[in-house]
Nucleic acid binder design. Structure first.
Length: 254
RNA sequence: UCGUAAAUGUCACGU
């Protein structure tokens, strides 16, 4: 079972969900019983590929085999829906996992927020985040979910995608207010990207400076977003200056 | 902290 799982993991990494499913069948045919990890690995492969129908089928199959899906299994299915743009289904599955007695963890919430963001549903993304902040999320029976930087980053990305740079700025402020959710390099890259989409070149540059001030070396992503913001606003001089600064400092991806 | 399983990277260029 071990080696099957390892091979399946390899297929998943390569986006080859069909082979992962085929291998699951081979396993059964050769009399090896798939376990929880096997199924979750196949689900992960489907999730990465956005194959939510297949994912649902696999989950039904594992249940039929008497194996209860856990947070990993459900998480991958939520991911599949998000990748496919099916945010409502993603939220539904999150609810289904709660109904089955599981408590979603921060990965699951992040994935759900991202599913909404990817589908352009930034209000829903912020709504979920707000519920988590207030500790009033659906099904939160006392067990409070720890907030994480990544969760905020997804919400911020949702705002960026929608061109809501001011909402993004609000999120950034909230992150700063919680020692558990410090902004990181990706946070700044996303807020700068939001500024670019909103054609706020001045804000974009301010955030670029700010990240350096708080001890986060600007990444290539932050620089590129800031340069894009300047370009979009026709601030060619500023764009060129940023480009110069970028090549002057050895900018790293992360 | 880790173990065979889950969530974030821009831009350009192509398709």
């Amino acid at each position: 079972c071990f080696s099957f799982n390892a091979a399946m993991h390899g297929y998943g990494r390569n986006g080859d969900w069909e082979r992962a499913i085929a291998l699951l069948q081979d396993m059964k045919d050769s009399g090896v019983r798939p376990d929880l990890v096997t199924y979750s690995t196949v689900l992960a492969a489907c999730g990465k590929a956005g194959e939510w129908q297949r994912g649902k089928a696999i989950m039904a199959e594992m249940k039929a085999d008497g194996i209860s899906p856990n947070v990993f299994s459900f998480g991958s299915l939520i991911n599949a829906c998000g990748k496919a743009g099916r945010w409502e289904l993603a939220v539904e599955i999150l609810e289904e996992m709660q109904a089955s007695g599981l408590v979603p963890n921060e990965h699951n919430w992040s994935t759900a927020i991202d599913a909404c963001g990817k589908a352009g549903e930034w209000q829903k993304a912020l709504d979920i985040l707000g519920q988590l902040e207030a500790g009033t999320e659906a099904g939160g029976g006392g067990e409070r979910v720890p907030l994480s930087t990544t969760m905020y980053n997804f919400a911020l990305e949702a705002c960026a995608r929608a061109g809501k740079w001011d909402r993004g700025a609000e999120i950034l402020e909230r992150m700063k207010g919680n020692p558990r959710t410090p902004p990181d390099a990706r946070t700044y890259a996303k807020i700068i990207d939001a500024c670019a989409k909103g054609e706020q070149w001045g804000q974009a540059i301010r955030y670029l400076y700010e990240m350096r001030e708080v001890g986060i070396p600007p990444t290539i992503f932050a620089f590129n977003a800031a340069i894009a913001a300047c370009g979009k606003c026709g601030r060619w001089k500023e764009a060129l200056a940023l480009f110069g600064a970028m090549s002057r400092e050895g900018v790293s991806p992360d």
